[in-house]
Design a protein around this nucleic acid. Structure first.
Lengths: 337, 337
DNA sequence: TTGTATGCGTTATCAA
DNA sequence: TTGATAACGCATACAA
């Protein structure tokens, strides 16, 4: 491996001078600078970030932990985070927890040992609290994305889940639906709780009864077994005329299930959901959704994180950004007025 | 920051003993081991991977460079790579080049300075050669994914592009199509070239003429301007009855364009493409595709990479894995026999 | 403008 | 079974 000492020897200067050329610090004569640069080229020198990190006590490495790499909401978010990180000269590491606390725990260990400068976390849920406390204890700045975790105060970017869910319900009601079910993520996740509340609010505002048999709670992530969901659908009697899905993944799963049972969407069942489907929505503009500004989640979250890192020491108050969801009306709801 | 010296002091041993406990090396009495472990717990000790990397000359960090993070082919591939890396105790960094040589170049720099132990690369195309040469020059083991680059010998996982494309064409022909166009990625990408050849082979085997006006070459990545593609479609006179798309992204773009112009798929135009659409295909099993085994690309590529790293020094011959594509017949082709 | 000494946190080597 | 010392590659403080 070529080191600054190799450069120094060949250029007849000290290692310190080489370091100064690399970092553009201190005063250096143009002649030696040119000479050092030439030797660096010749030897294909690449600075060793590991050594640099050790002495500088910073890695210029940031980490983004998402819960589902197959979900366009998170990949779009990742692009936003990537762009913002790059703009500020940080590199970005990704991790994918699969909505799984153990995998999340592994990543927290990785994050701690790798000494990254900061973390963007979409937590698996409320039980993620000890993970976040661990980050806090080790002075790793972090920003939460999409989900709040009771017990921890921090910077956070959220979507307006309650409002979005309420609007989805009211859209259904406006088109004549009176029997509306909901399939949702785990109630240990703040966004799922808020979406349920929004659903309830929507019903109440329109004098419709809330019936918990019409609500099914499962995971936001890809399910490998749909039999429970199937049983829930069988249990509902009569069937609702519409279903609100807590996110896009659930919407896809419900639709697949319904179609397999010969229940056409939207002919026999209307479906709406949270989060858009990325590029798919363009070829098949089918699902009516409450689209969140995924890219902004990543971009703004990353900006907050970097600001937090750079203002280290000073005690900025915690910031909370709430992004509205846009109702995009397409064809998955039947007008039955 | 808590270091092994803090542990050592509090446990009344030397730093070396602490290091031995951490790494399970050497002989240590059960008593001191227990004592050291207790102190480590008390102090919330986390090993500093940066320091460790510096002395061990390895980071246990691997890198996966993909060209389109929004494409389910690559996210599925990423999951395969992640699983395989984890199984062997490596951590994984992701990068997204956006089919863009400059971004790819930036990531190569990142890879070099971060001193990762190895890289999985889906190269942007033939012009990626200098990037790969740079990796080779700095002794960074790498495995190519999905695309060959003339001029570099290395381990590689490929799909059988030529065969897959030929089968797509023959499927169309079997359903009566005689006028078949192709929209493809850049000819500076090996897979695009092979898919074009497969297309040509399919025509020739069935005594159909090849007409280059029916072939349009653009980028495999998301296009921000579809006017050129639109002009190509307008130029074709008469319109073909079917189009083969070089990948899933192109298929989506063509379909959107056609539908905007009132050309229904598959009523007025049949479409097939390379690569499946991930979860979306499950709710809307529409596109007939040559599905590649995306997960296997990542998983097997990662295995090869890790083997290459572990057999460092010994000179294994380069390996080449070619994965077949599965023809999945759905509803995007009209039978006009 | 340039160089020397020192330390970042860890592990390998050798000695006790 | 344990410990002292040097080294990994670089940057900071201070000296020249």
């Amino acid at each position: 491996m070529v080191t600054i000492y190799d450069i120094a020897a060949k250029a007849n200067v000290s290692a310190m001078t080489v370091s100064r050329v690399i970092n553009n610090t201190g005063k250096i004569s143009e002649k030696t600078r040119a000479k050092v640069k030439r030797v660096m080229e010749e030897l294909n020198y690449v600075p060793n970030q590991t050594a640099r990190s050790l002495v500088l006590q910073q890695t210029k490495l940031l980490f983004l932990l998402i819960t589902d790499i197959m979900n366009p909401f998170y990949t779009t978010l990742a692009r936003g985070a990537e762009d913002a990180a790059k703009k500020s000269g940080y590199r970005l590491l990704f991790g994918n927890s699969d909505e799984n606390l153990e995998k999340e725990s592994d990543y927290i260990t990785t994050i701690l040992t790798a000494r990254v400068d900061g973390v963007l976390v979409a937590p698996a849920g409320d039980p993620s609290l000890p993970h976040l406390e661990s980050l806090r204890r080790h002075n790793v700045p972090f920003v939460l994305l999409d989900r709040e975790v009771p017990g921890i105060a921090c910077d956070i970017v959220l979507g307006d889940s309650k409002d979005g869910a309420r609007r989805l319900v009211e859209h259904l009601i406006a088109l004549g639906h009176r029997s509306i079910a909901m399939v949702n993520g785990s109630s240990s996740i703040s966004s799922a709780r808020l979406r349920l509340q929004g659903y309830q609010d929507g019903l109440k505002l329109n004098d419709l009864p809330y019936d918990e048999r019409y609500v099914y709670e499962t995971s936001f992530g890809p399910l490998n077994d749909l039999t429970e969901m199937e049983q829930w659908i069988e249990r509902m009697d009569p069937l609702p005329t519409a279903i609100v899905a807590g996110n896009n993944v659930l919407a896809i799963e419900v639709m697949r299930l319904l179609r397999d049972r010969g229940i056409g969407v939207p002919e026999h069942m209307s479906i709406v959901c949270f989060d858009d489907l990325g590029p798919y929505s363009e070829i098949e503009p089918f699902l009516t959704v409450a689209a969140q500004q995924a890219y902004q989640f990543g971009y703004m979250g990353m900006q907050m994180l970097i600001e937090r890192i750079q203002e280290r020491g000073t005690s900025l108050p915690w910031k909370k950004i709430v992004l509205p969801a846009d109702l995009i009306i397409r064809r998955s709801v039947k007008d039955i007025t």
